[in-house]
């Protein structure tokens, strides 16, 4: 069994995921209680009810991401969101904050809990803490472990392990990266967004098109170069005498070729990143991964990635290039 967990930023995306072979979809409320707090994205309660019905009728599970970190001044919003999640009867709530998990476990003992990638758990001792104290059933691992390390965690983990298989790549341990708030005052932890659009500026200059985040120059695109969205860690910076992508290139994670090893390692679910992407993205990526997982389960020894799968995924990838990320040691 390998569950395909797909992103749903809105109802059309949810339907695209469900219709094209997702086993589960994940979504969030329309506010800063989840880590894709973007304008025009996510679900109010009515839309969420519709989405849950649509998925359920087709045998697809629904997970609710409630994976940011409330502070005392706004704690009640998270508490309300947890209560709503329980009311809606989602199949699992994905959370990161210890306080949120504690509240959910105490108040809604029947609400299944998953530890979000934002919980930064990279080892089985950490997973044991969440299992013992909140009864989590599953954890999503940060995108920092090599494949042998993932395998080792799975072998010793008290809970199911889900990993990211495709989509935008976080280079840093999720939940512990505050580069975004250093430049803008808003981080995934506090605001539910990295490198928020509200702080982005585009400027034509004699040196080229400049993109800034919080006033900091992230990228300068020369003639013939395309300027991507200024995600802080994907910018070009100067270190010593060199100007280069000092942290990471604009690239996406794609682990399609690792699929047999991931299944063999005992990973139970593959997560596709991209709640902020279009329904077309969700449809294409879900289709490819559905075919790949089915092919791999049918015949793991004969499994090979198909050229048409890879080209379809490249088309929707950031910077049109993909990487195995930390799963492959040379990347590190």
């Amino acid at each position: 069994m390998m569950e395909l967990v797909c992103p749903a930023g809105n109802l059309p995306s949810l339907k695209a995921a469900v219709d094209n072979g997702a086993n589960a979809v994940y979504l969030g409320f329309k506010d800063d209680t989840n880590a894709r707090h973007f304008a025009g994205l996510n679900f109010d309660k009515a839309k969420m009810t519709q989405g849950i019905d649509y998925a359920r009728q087709r045998g697809v599970r629904v997970f609710l991401a409630l994976n940011t970190y409330p502070q005392p001044a706004n704690w009640s919003r998270w508490q309300f969101a947890v209560d709503q999640a329980a009311d809606l009867g989602v199949d699992a709530m994905i959370a990161a904050d210890l306080g949120v998990l504690d509240y959910a476990a105490e108040r809604h003992p029947n609400l299944p809990l998953h530890l979000s990638v934002q919980g930064s758990a990279t080892n089985y001792e950490a997973l044991s803490f969440y299992r013992e104290n909140f009864g989590i059933r599953r954890a999503v691992l940060p995108r920092v472990l090599s494949l042998p390390q993932v395998k080792h965690v799975v072998e010793n983990s008290p809970v199911e392990i889900e990993i990211f298989g495709f989509g935008s790549l976080c280079v840093m341990v999720e939940g512990r990266c505050i580069l975004s708030s250093y430049a803008t005052g808003r981080s995934p932890n506090t605001f539910g967004a990295c490198s928020p659009a509200s702080h982005v500026e585009w400027r034509e200059t004699p040196q080229g098109l400049e993109t800034r985040l919080g006033g900091v120059l992230i990228e300068r695109a020369g003639q013939g170069e395309s300027a991507g969205y200024p995600t802080l860690c994907k910018g070009r910076f100067q270190v010593g005498a060199n100007t280069y992508h000092a942290i990471e290139e604009p690239t996406s994670l794609n682990t399609l070729e690792l699929l047999p090893q991931l299944i063999e390692a005992g990973v139970v679910a593959i997560k596709i990143e991209g709640r902020q992407r279009s329904p077309v993205y969700v449809k294409q990526v879900t289709q490819v991964w559905r075919q790949a997982i089915d092919a791999c389960i049918r015949n793991p020894d004969g499994y090979q990635t198909r050229a048409d799968w890879m080209s379809q995924l490249d088309k929707v990838s950031e910077g049109s290039q993909t990487t195995l990320g930390a799963y492959s040691r040379p990347w590190q």
Binding site: V171, R176, I178, V239, I247, E248, A326, R329, P330
Partner: peptide, 20 residues
């Protein structure tokens, strides 16, 4: 201020060296 942690070593990367 410590702002982030990664699997990747950025000092090694600055010298075009692999982490290992």
């Amino acid at each position: 201020l410590p702002l982030a942690y990664s699997a990747r070593c950025f000092t090694a990367r600055a010298h075009n060296l692999p982490k290992d």
